[in-house]
């Protein structure tokens, strides 16, 4: 009894079949590991470009001062505080708009729609996700810019609020589709239990489904946040790109991402300014890494619960 039936089966299959299987297996494994390789590679590249400047920086200044004068002749200053404030404020405002809207839409699609309407909505939402960010930037420059100037008490249309609206529209599809998956994963038996006790559909949603799907919904929100933080083109075009602390909804701001996009082409490779932009890249890396880690932990919370 030294051979299991499976082993005998294997041995009798043609040789090239086994070789082919090995090859495919190897290829698939390579694809999987390459993801790790790429992430590490990119991080190392960004780190290598930024690293020589790291010991030279006065971190108190960098993180607390809004003074960003990377090309000043007299006195070069690399304060990114205003940009961090810009990135955080535009992301936060975008989420204030996108989270209720996105979760509402996810609930609507998953619990209140059936058949045709549901399919159509899902397709439209996916289309929304596929719009390139440069197109959103155009919309920000032309459409929302004018709308804000006309209807809101804002001196300029390119500002925090404009960019936040665009970012909200860009993260809503992510929140909706992942949120909908989270709700769909709640067993139907919970819905039936609640309905059979006389719950309305809305009671079923907020008393049973939202608590049951909370980890997945949190992950959806965090992935939306990640999308908003990383966005570059649309915010470069719509924020006004003014390096200052926002004092109202309608102040122009500048974000970390937009700064890199706008200035990297102008710097000499290897210069301090060039390296500083990579340091900003490292900061972004850290922020998105934390957000993704949180999202991952949230999703894992789901698995521990059900499994």
């Amino acid at each position: 009894m030294s051979e299991t039936p499976l082993e005998t089966l294997r041995r009798h299959r043609p040789r090239w079949d086994r070789v082919g299987e090995r090859a495919v297996e190897g290829l698939i494994r390579l694809c999987g590991y390459s993801a790790i390789l790429f992430v590490l590679g990119i991080f190392l590249f960004v780190f290598r470009e930024g690293a020589p400047l790291l010991p030279k920086l006065d971190w108190g200044r960098v993180l607390l001062s809004p003074e960003w004068y990377p090309t000043s002749r007299m006195h070069v200053r690399y304060g990114v505080a205003a940009m961090i404030a810009g990135t955080l404020s535009v992301t936060a405002l975008a989420m204030v708009l996108a989270v209720p809207f996105g979760l509402g839409a996810a609930i609507f699609v998953s619990e209140f729609c059936t058949g045709r309407v549901k399919e159509t909505l899902k397709i439209v939402i996916e289309l929304l996700a596929a719009i390139p960010s440069i197109v959103w930037g155009f919309i920000g420059l032309s459409v929302t810019n004018r709308l804000i100037q006309t209807y809101l008490p804002a001196p300029v249309g390119l500002n925090l609020f404009n960019a936040a609206c665009l970012l909200a529209l860009m993260s809503v599809p992510i929140i909706v589709s992942i949120g909908e998956d989270a709700l769909k994963a709640v067993p139907d038996s919970y819905r039936e239990a609640a309905l059979a006790l006389g719950a309305t559909r809305w009671q079923t949603v907020y008393r049973v489904l939202l608590p049951a799907a909370r980890h997945g919904l949190l992950a959806a929100v965090l992935l939306g946040v990640g999308r908003a933080i990383g966005e570059t083109m649309a915010v470069l075009m719509a924020t006004g790109h003014a390096n200052q602390f926002p004092r109202s909804l309608f102040d122009p701001i500048r974000t970390l991402t937009a700064t890199i996009a706008a200035e990297l082409g102008e710097t000499a490779v290897g210069s301090d300014h060039y390296r500083m932009l990579f340091v900003i890249g490292l900061m972004l890396f850290t922020i998105t890494f934390i957000v993704n880690l949180l999202a991952d932990l949230a999703v894992r919370g789901v698995r521990n619960k059900t499994g």
């Binding site: 038996s189 919970y190 039936e192 239990a193 609640a194 059979a196 608590p211 049951a212 619960k305």
Partner: peptide
């Protein structure tokens, strides 16, 4: 129901 379905 057929399978016990207490709420979570």
């Amino acid at each position: 129901f057929q399978r016990p379905n207490p709420l979570p």
